[in-house]
Simulated scan of single mutants.
Amino acid sequence: MKKIILLILVLASCKTGEKLNNSELCGVLSNLHLQDQFYRGMQELEDPFFMVLDSLMDVNNLSRSEYAKLSEKEQLAFGKIARKIADTKPKISKVEEDSLMVLQKELDYKTTEKLLEIVKKYGFPDTEKLKCENYAAPFLIFGHAPKKYWKEIDKVIEKEKLANRIGEGDYKYIKWHIGGRKDNEIDQIQIQVN
């Protein structure tokens, strides 16, 4: 059933050749986000840090923009709490994880291609400026992009950075991913992402 709903969402979000209005673009971005998290969310394969951080912001009545305006020390405090809670997540078996990730990687190819198309046509999406009602995090899609796309993503986000259409946190997170996730700066990057 979940696969049928996803297919309907994907087909509904495809409007070939025409320029999308803000509401339609928000719908596509939201659907891409759902696809990006589809199998990851089924068994919480990914680190739940952002979900916990979002919950902490909600509990403290902070919007994303208000959170982004907090001092680095305050953001770090939220990040430490979110990390502590996220680390309590139960683990699934390696076989289950591997099976679900094979399916998720197929979706990652599609979502990356679609987001590249959107960024080239509209610039890096700012869901707050677009006034998206449903949650969408375009940086996560590029943050899960297969290696095949890394060079293309790098060119695109460099162009977007020069045009001031991508936030610093989103930019750093994507660069960390396409750089092979080698350095240990992710905890600092995670709490700066808007």
Rank of each mutant, 00 (worst) to 15 (best):
K172C: 06
E117I: 13
I178R: 06
F78C: 05
L45H: 04
G79C: 06
K110Y: 08
F139T: 01
D36L: 08
Y149M: 00
E160A: 13
G169S: 09
V193W: 06
Y171A: 14
V10S: 03
L62R: 06
K175S: 08
A136H: 07
G169T: 03
S30T: 15
E66L: 07
I85Q: 07
F50Q: 06
K91R: 15
Y135W: 10
D87C: 12
K69V: 05
D154I: 02
T127R: 09
E44M: 13
A12H: 10
I191Q: 08
D187S: 09
K84R: 15
K129W: 08
A137D: 09
K131F: 04
A12Y: 12
P125S: 14
L20V: 06
A68Y: 09
L76R: 12
L56C: 01
D170W: 09
P146S: 07
N61D: 07
K120Q: 14
G17H: 05
N22D: 15
K161P: 00
S65I: 09
E117L: 15
Q188A: 11
K155F: 08
F142N: 00
K147L: 14
L56A: 02
K159I: 10
S55C: 13
K105Q: 08
F124D: 02
K131V: 09
M42A: 14
E160D: 06
L115F: 09
E117N: 11
Y122H: 00
N22M: 06
I141R: 01
L130W: 03
L7Y: 14
E74C: 04
K155L: 14
A86H: 10
N21Y: 02
M57K: 11
E44L: 13
P90A: 04
F139D: 07
G167S: 08
H144Q: 11
D126C: 07
N60Y: 08
P90D: 05
K69E: 15
H177T: 07
K94F: 03
Q190F: 01
S99D: 08
E185M: 15
K131E: 14
E24S: 03
